[in-house]
Design a protein around this nucleic acid. Structure first.
Lengths: 328, 328
DNA sequence: TTGAAAGCGCTAACAA
DNA sequence: TTGTTAGCGCTTTCAA
């Protein structure tokens, strides 16, 4: 690859001038032309490694997510990417696989590669941001909150649980179960709390604990929990799924048993982008994943730009898309 | 951040020795201990930017895919990642959005960041690899072939089209339509050819052209094409979907019109990871996406390691998962 | 506006 | 086995 020296020589200027041309500093028009010509001729691309070593920062931001195969996170990634690339930044997607150690490996890489900042959907509340924050790089948390004083973007989780449950009640279901992610994760706990309160308001006599299951945030988790619920002596007639993948698992099991919605009521927190169900059969509480990514990216870019206002947390509203069906 | 000099000073050795400790060169046991202690104490992480500037390569590989929201590609990404991280490499996921210009931007970044190699699922046959290949970096093509003499991993596309179609014929369907990706893309064309030949073998009188639609490889494309097919004077009674997302779109439309499979026959090339349909209702030709990623990553690592054997193309076999239903 | 020169943190000859 | 030293390609002061 051609270097700045090759270009300088061909254009008859100094390397510093070439650098200035590529960085928008003031250079006489004639030299700008000469440099651009020479660069084109040599197919010169500035070496980012050298630039970032010198500048102690690179136009790359890391996006650390717990599950690259979950459409919720890839939709968010799209939002991040669109804003970042608009601003000339590249996005490196890192899959932590919900493991704290993989997560910290990626954070180390972000430091070692001089990346400008990090957007992270924390794998758990064990996530340690100490070392990345001590380097002064901005970090924005998405989806889940963290115990650090940093910017964050989260969903309105409690109301998502409430809305989902209320819609099933409206549709006439009486025994509404809940399948959520691990109780130790705050988003999962909040959604469950929403379900519990909506249920208690209408069916105070119901034993909610019996109808709640806490699984992994994955299809398999939804499947197992749904099987368990259906095997109860007094099984539910509807279920609220705590995230998209749990919803998929639950609906799969129901379909296999001939309990296709709306015969059995289903409300899902999160969208089902690749569902093949009729859109009227299932209640969906849409979570604005893309918007979360866009917001987080904007906040991060502001911080990279030197913004030092106090840390902000943005809470994004969800939007309910009710099942049109009424229990027959 | 601490540098190698800080560690050297604290450990009472030269910077070179610190470097050797971190790169596995021979250093006396006593100094290894001293260096490791000092490094831990200073929370030293080697600066990858500097290393890669010096070494002219970084332990990062770029994975360029056309659609980060397609589970087919994220599944493949998982395969790449698993092999790469095992070998100490990081994977940077780049979303080309099927646009050749975004694609070449990312390839430029790969060059400028001194990445070790690239795995690319080309956006089209316009994809130019000239500049990346001229740097001597290894490139492996996945999913689609390219006109360069490089390693590749592709699916057995023609047989996928044939198997899908034959299974629908077996199940008793008579007018089997096809919805595929753009005809200009070779994978799409091959799958269509498989469908065409299977159909012609059994129903030679059928006007296949009338029953074929070429859409985008997306849910929306599948939806529109399915609508069109159903509006034909003599509509089909079954359809082969050329990829997973087209299948989702087609099934959505069918479901909305009350033509839930198996009332209307559906065979999909590619898996439906988040389907909520009964697994017996739809024929699925599974494409080993993860395996494609694993294979590509291994090939790339071999090339990075200096392997110079002639370019290879691996063709991966698919596996049919027939619908158990027979047309009633 | 321009050029000379130093140095970002690391690695790899070369010498000892 | 260890240290010294010269750069990798770029940006950025400082001086002209």
């Amino acid at each position: 690859m051609a270097t700045i020296y090759d270009v300088a020589e061909l254009a008859g200027v100094s390397p510093a001038t070439v650098s200035r041309v590529f960085n928008g500093a003031s250079v006489s028009a004639a030299k700008v032309v000469a440099v651009r010509d020479a660069a084109k001729q040599l197919k010169f691309t500035p070496n980012r490694t050298a630039r970032s070593l010198r500048r102690q920062s690179s136009e790359v931001i890391a996006l650390v997510i717990p599950d690259i195969e979950n459409p919720y996170f890839t939709e968010m990634a799209r939002g991040v990417e669109d804003v970042a690339s608009e601003a000339g930044y590249s996005v490196v997607l890192c899959n932590s696989d919900s493991q704290v150690d993989k997560e910290s490996t990626y954070l180390q890489i972000a430091i070692a590669e001089n990346m400008s900042g990090v957007i992270i959907a924390p794998a758990s509340d064990q996530t340690s941001l100490d070392s990345i924050l001590s380097t002064g790089r901005p970090v924005v948390a998405v989806d889940r909150g963290v115990s650090y004083d940093i910017d964050g973007v989260v969903m309105e989780n409690r109301s998502a649980g409430t809305s989902a449950t209320k819609d099933l009640i409206r549709a006439g279901y009486k025994r509404i179960a809940y399948i959520g992610g691990p109780e130790s994760i705050d988003t999962a706990a909040e959604r469950a709390a929403g379900w519990r309160s909506a249920l208690a308001a209408v069916f105070p006599a119901l034993n909610a604990a019996e109808l709640a299951r806490f699984a992994t945030f994955r299809v398999e988790g939804g499947r197992e929990a749904m099987e368990e619920l259906l095997a109860l002596p007094e099984p539910p007639d509807a279920v609220v799924a705590g995230n998209n993948l749990i919803g998929v698992g639950a609906i799969q099991v129901l379909t296999e048993k001939g309990l296709t919605p709306p015969r059995f009521g289903v409300a899902v927190i999160g969208s089902l982008p690749f569902t093949t169900l009729s859109p009227t059969a299932v209640t969906v509480v849409r979570l604005p994943a893309r918007h979360m990514g866009v917001t987080a990216a904007r906040m991060l870019l502001e911080r990279i730009g030197g913004d030092t206002q106090p840390a902000r947390t943005v809470v994004l509203r969800n939007e309910i898309q009710p099942a049109s069906a009424i229990r027959s």
